[in-house]
Design a binder for these strands. Structure first.
Lengths: 149, 149
DNA sequence: CATATCATTCAGTTTCAACTGAACAATATA
DNA sequence: TATATTGTTCAGTTGAAACTGAATGATATG
């Protein structure tokens, strides 16, 4: 059995990671699932997740599939058991970074295309659009740098 | 009068920037206001914004104040007029970056504190928490690098 | 002071994504 | 084959944030 202090740290971390994840534009429950899988070595079963987090099986299904699609977790099975188990993948945060990268790239392209379509003599607009473009480009480069470190 | 092509580029940019901004967790209208102020040299009045974007004065009020709070736009007045005017500030994206930085810092601290509160012999958890911590730290450093460039 | 012109506030509405839970599908076991 | 167990889907609900618009507040002008 875990100590009171440990137990509290666990619960708080799971909850906090849910909030952080939500602030980053993902469902809160996805973050809470991640929280569990970060903390525990043994793969967690579908039912255990549902029970531990007190959310419906439907929600577990949706969010585990989301995290699988993001390549952050993986599904495993145990011999002689029908249940699915989940655990954190290697380099779980790579695909998050890749998502940010493509978003920055898209945004940059939107701005670039707008700039090209506007008259050259809109000097002010051209300047400000270039600044915005630079912002997205810099951000893109920075996030590239993280993954390639 | 603007050419048809120019007009379309303007409308599309404003709309797109609204969507991008929303995807980044801010209200869509804030992004659309930004779009207008990026494109036009002359300060836009409160009423002009409301008319151009076809949204209520209440929404303009809320979102201009948000963008002011983020130091992305500034409010000006013209002598002999009571209306408020708005224009893009210098370095409009600095405070966005600062926002990201503080969020990354907070997240990193949450993870760090959790790790400290957990037993040392939870080896796996310690490792995975350190990885997550590294993710936030790297992201923080990268965003620092952008602003200091 | 009365009126007009603005910006702000806030209660109500709308909207949209997340979540639930029941129905369904798939698979194993008796 | 019948039953049990498990994951998925989807229609409906919920909840939270954004938006509206009328009321209010503030300020200038006659």
């Amino acid at each position: 059995m875990n100590s009171e202090k440990t137990e509290q740290a666990i619960e708080e971390f799971i909850e906090r990671l849910g909030l952080i994840t939500q602030a980053d534009g993902m469902p809160r429950i996805a973050g809470r699932i991640l929280g569990v899988l970060v903390l525990f070595d043994e793969p967690f079963s579908f039912s255990q997740l549902s029970e531990k987090l007190q959310v419906s099986r439907g929600s577990i299904s949706t969010n585990t599939r989301l995290l699988e699609a993001l390549a952050m977790i993986e599904r495993t099975t145990k011999p002689g058991e029908r249940q699915d188990y989940f655990r954190l993948r290697k380099n779980p945060y790579d695909s998050l970074m890749r998502g940010i990268q493509t978003r920055m790239l898209c945004s940059q392209e939107v701005v670039e295309q707008t700039r090209e379509q506007l008259p050259d003599d809109w000097v002010g607009a051209q300047i400000r659009l270039k600044e915005l473009e630079k912002f997205y480009k810099d951000f893109y480069q920075a996030s590239l740098a993280i993954t390639n470190k």
